[in-house]
Amino acid sequence: MKNETLNRRTKIANDILYYIYTHIDTDINIDELSIDLNISKFHMHRIFKDAFGKNIYENIKDIRLQKASNLLITNKYSTISDIANQCGYSSQSSFTRVFKQRFLMTPKEWKNGGFKEFSQNIIAQFPKALLSTANFDNMEPEIVEMPTMSSYYIRHSGYDIGIKKTWQKLYTWVLNNKIENYKQIALYHNNPTITPLYSCQYIACIVPQSTEKITNDKLPQFTIAKGTYAKFDLSGEYGDVLKFIHWVYHEWLPQSGYETTTKPSYAMYHKNHFLSQDENFKLSFYVSIQY
Rank of each mutant, 00 (worst) to 15 (best):
K2M: 13
R8H: 12
R9D: 11
I16F: 05
Y18K: 11
I20W: 00
Y21N: 13
T22Y: 11
D25F: 01
I39G: 02
S40K: 13
K41Y: 00
R46G: 02
D50Y: 05
F52W: 12
Y57I: 06
I60A: 06
I60N: 08
Q66G: 04
L72V: 03
N75L: 01
K76R: 14
I83H: 03
A84N: 06
N85R: 15
C87D: 09
Q92I: 13
S94N: 14
M105V: 11
K108W: 02
W110M: 08
I122H: 03
I122M: 10
K128H: 13
A129Q: 12
A129Y: 10
N138M: 06
M139E: 08
T148I: 04
S150R: 11
S151Q: 02
Y153W: 08
H156C: 03
I161F: 11
K165C: 02
K165F: 07
T172V: 04
T172D: 12
W173P: 04
V174D: 01
N177A: 06
E180P: 00
N190F: 01
Y198N: 09
C200S: 07
I203T: 05
V207H: 02
V207R: 00
Q221I: 14
F222D: 07
T223R: 05
G227A: 09
G227T: 11
K231M: 15
Y238H: 05
G239R: 12
G239M: 10
G239H: 08
D240E: 11
H246G: 05
H250M: 14
L253N: 00
S256D: 02
Y258M: 04
E259H: 04
K263Y: 03
S265M: 13
S265R: 02
Y266P: 00
Y269D: 04
N272P: 03
Q277T: 11
N280R: 09
V287A: 07
S288K: 03
S288N: 13
